[in-house]
């Protein structure tokens, strides 16, 4: 079970701030693929990913219990 968090324009596109997915041992690229099949969120191709609050690579694998967050280009300050 993976928790997936959405922020900003992604959160508005999906209409939720989080999803629980019954997945484990898949790469971020695979996770993005599954999400794109379910939701119309083309922006997903252009966002960074954080796993457990650290930036991660598309090839990194996520396991049950992980918190995955999609991070659109930031604009704080």
């Amino acid at each position: 079970m993976i928790t997936v968090l959405f922020f900003a324009q992604l959160q508005e596109a999906i209409g939720k701030d989080r999803l629980i997915m019954e997945e484990s041992g898949i790469t971020i690229t695979e996770l993005k693929g599954k999400l794109k099949m379910e939701y119309a969120i083309p922006q997903l191709d252009h966002v960074m990913t954080a796993v457990n609050e650290e930036y991660a690579l598309p090839t990194d694998t996520v396991s049950s219990g992980d918190i995955v967050a999609f991070i659109p280009p930031v604009s704080g300050g």
């Binding site: 900003a8 930036y55 930031v74 300050g77």
Partner: peptide
Amino acid sequence: RIKQIVPIWKK
């Protein structure tokens, strides 16, 4: 750096 790496968004 804040503008590069901190996950904060402005609408």
